[in-house]
Measured scan of single mutants.
Amino acid sequence: MWEAGIQHIELEKGSKGLGFSILDYQDPIDPASTVIIIRSLVPGGIAEKDGRLLPGDRLMFVNDVNLENSSLEEAVEALKGAPSGTVRIGVAKPLP
């Protein structure tokens, strides 16, 4: 389960991407759907250096692409398709 509020994070995407990987996970509230979760951070990558994204965070959007009900493929496309420079990411943090 995740917090209702969405944290807005801006990262600078370079030639090596944003520095994290994702996975799809069965939604605990709606078993028929999936949620997109941050799986891991690349050591020394943009996301790890920034410090705000953590494994277990739920990915909600990338720039103007809503990922609340997306497939893993759609989420990967949104991340890979984001141009270099500032990328806006929304995440919901896990409940304590």
Rank of each mutant, 00 (worst) to 15 (best):
L41S: 01
S21Y: 07
L11G: 00
R58M: 02
N66L: 06
G14Y: 12
E77Q: 12
M60L: 12
A78V: 12
I38P: 00
M1F: 12
S84Y: 07
T34D: 08
E48D: 06
H8P: 11
S40G: 15
L79I: 10
A47L: 02
L79H: 00
V42Q: 12
G14S: 14
P96A: 11
W2D: 11
L41C: 07
S70L: 07
P31Q: 10
V76H: 13
K13F: 12
G17Q: 05
P94F: 02
H8C: 12
P55W: 02
G44T: 05
E73A: 13
D50E: 03
R39N: 15
T86N: 10
G45E: 15
R88N: 09
A4Y: 11
A32R: 14
D24M: 03
I38C: 06
A78F: 06
E77T: 09
A82R: 03
A82E: 11
Q26D: 12
I46V: 08
V87F: 03
L79M: 12
L79G: 01
K16N: 05
M1L: 03
E10Q: 12
F61D: 04
E3Q: 06
G19A: 02
D24A: 05
S84T: 09
S71R: 05
A47Q: 01
G14P: 06
R88C: 13
P43V: 10
F61K: 12
G56E: 03
P55F: 02
E3W: 04
H8L: 12
I36L: 07
L54Q: 14
P94I: 15
K13D: 03
F20S: 00
Y25L: 07
V87L: 09
V87I: 12
I6V: 12
G56Q: 04
L79C: 10
L18D: 01
E68D: 08
G81M: 14
V35S: 15
D30N: 14
K93V: 03
G45S: 14
H8K: 12
S84G: 14
P94N: 15
P96W: 04
D64W: 04
E10C: 08
G14E: 09
S40P: 01
K13T: 12
F61I: 08
K49G: 10
P94Q: 15
G81V: 13
L59S: 00
P94S: 11
L18A: 03
N63H: 03
G51M: 04
L23K: 15
M60N: 03
K13S: 12
L23F: 10
M60V: 10
G44F: 06
G5C: 03
F61S: 07
P43Q: 10
A32M: 09
D50K: 03
G14T: 13
E68I: 14
V42G: 04
E68G: 06
P31N: 13
G81W: 08
G17H: 04
L11T: 02
A78L: 10
I37H: 09
A82L: 14
M1P: 02
D24Q: 08
R58I: 02
E74R: 08
N63D: 08
K49A: 11
A47I: 02
V87E: 00
Q7Y: 10
P28S: 12
E74W: 06
I38E: 01
N66D: 09
G51H: 06
P28F: 05
L95N: 08
I6T: 09
L23S: 15
L95M: 14
M60R: 06
R39D: 15
M1T: 04
I36E: 01
D27V: 12
P31C: 07
L41P: 00
K80H: 09
N63M: 03
L72H: 09
G51Y: 00
D57P: 01
M60W: 03
E74F: 06
S33Q: 12
K13I: 11
